[in-house]
Amino acid sequence: MLLLNLNSLLAALTFYTCFPVSPNFQLDFSRIARWAPVIGLLLGAGLGLVDLGLDSLHVPNLTRSAIVVVLWIWWTGGLHLDGAMDAADGLAVQDPDRRLIVMSDSVTGAFGAMVAVVIILLKTCALTEITPDRLWILPLAAGWSRWGQVLSIALYPYLKVQGKGAFHRQGMNIPQDISIGLACLVAVTSCQIYLNPAHGLSIVVRAIASCGIAILAGYYFDRRLGGHTGDTYGAVVEWTETFILCLCTIPI
């Protein structure tokens, strides 16, 4: 059982990131969505360590933040950002019947390009304003956003007969697959509170707000489209990350 879970977790790592995995593992891509929040936590932890290293080298805050955001895109292969761009192009179409067709087009439109610029700009500016706790905020932002993705997969219909995100719904166990990521996020948040009890209340408030953002992002796209696609799954991740980082600039 442990080996099967490891093969599934490593499959999620190869799907959601650009990190290579040894071909000796028999990767199992079924139900990999359940591991998305865990991958987010690991990804954010890696970004946090890079950020910490750059800080030790006295790299200016803005430059450091820009490097982290670029690595964020690179390590995920732009998977979620591409989805956010396609979703923006689709939602810009006034005719609801044509939205899915536009989203399936590989050519990026004006609205998709603008959304990419906005997301990258907001993330960079927000990170620049966040000075303490970046080592915690980065993994939690990446983790909560992917938990929102799992929730969207579980709760809302998939709009395409065939698509790159269709297999995520196949065989999904509810509520177990939702609970895995949530339990990991609560555990990391609890560790943060344990190590920094003086800011326990603000940590809890941010965690609740982050959870709310993740839920609302998936709900928004369902309301606009009547369901989800692989592109909107990516959009949920990107916009949730962005709004959580913006939230963390607010002193609580």
Rank of each mutant, 00 (worst) to 15 (best):
Pro60Asn: 09
Asp95Glu: 15
Ala154Lys: 07
Leu185Thr: 02
Gly77Lys: 04
Ala113Pro: 00
Tyr194His: 11
Gly90Leu: 04
Ala12Arg: 06
Leu42Tyr: 02
Phe19Arg: 00
Ile119Asn: 04
Cys248Pro: 07
Tyr16Asp: 02
Ile215Cys: 03
Leu127Ala: 02
Val21Cys: 03
Leu247Lys: 10
Leu247Asn: 12
Val21Thr: 02
Ala187Trp: 07
His80Phe: 12
Arg223Asn: 10
Leu159Cys: 11
Ala45Ser: 15
Thr76Ser: 15
Trp72Asn: 10
Ile130Gly: 09
Ala198Gln: 11
Thr17Cys: 13
Ala33Phe: 01
Thr108Ala: 10
Val38Asn: 01
Cys125Ile: 15
Asp55Ile: 02
Leu91His: 05
Gly77Cys: 05
Gly46Phe: 01
His168Ala: 04
Asp95Ser: 15
Ala235Cys: 14
Leu225Glu: 04
Arg64Asp: 03
His228Trp: 08
Thr229Asp: 03
Gly181Ser: 13
Leu247Asp: 12
Cys191Phe: 11
Ser56Met: 07
Ala142Val: 00
Gln94Ala: 12
Gly53Thr: 06
Leu43Pro: 07
Pro197Arg: 02
Asp97Asn: 08
Ser30Arg: 15
Val117Gly: 03
Pro157Tyr: 03
Gln176Tyr: 06
Gly48Tyr: 03
Cys18Val: 07
Gly148Phe: 08
Val102Asp: 01
Phe221Thr: 08
Leu13Tyr: 00
Phe167Ala: 15
Leu52Cys: 09
Arg169Pro: 04
Ser179Cys: 14
Gly181Arg: 03
Leu62His: 12
Val115Ile: 05
Ala126Cys: 09
Leu49Ala: 11
Val118Phe: 15
Leu6Lys: 09
Tyr156Ile: 07
Arg134Asp: 10
Leu13His: 02
Thr131Met: 09
Pro157Ala: 05
Met85Asn: 00
Arg64Val: 01
Val237Ala: 01
Ile120Thr: 01
Thr14Lys: 09
Pro60Gln: 12
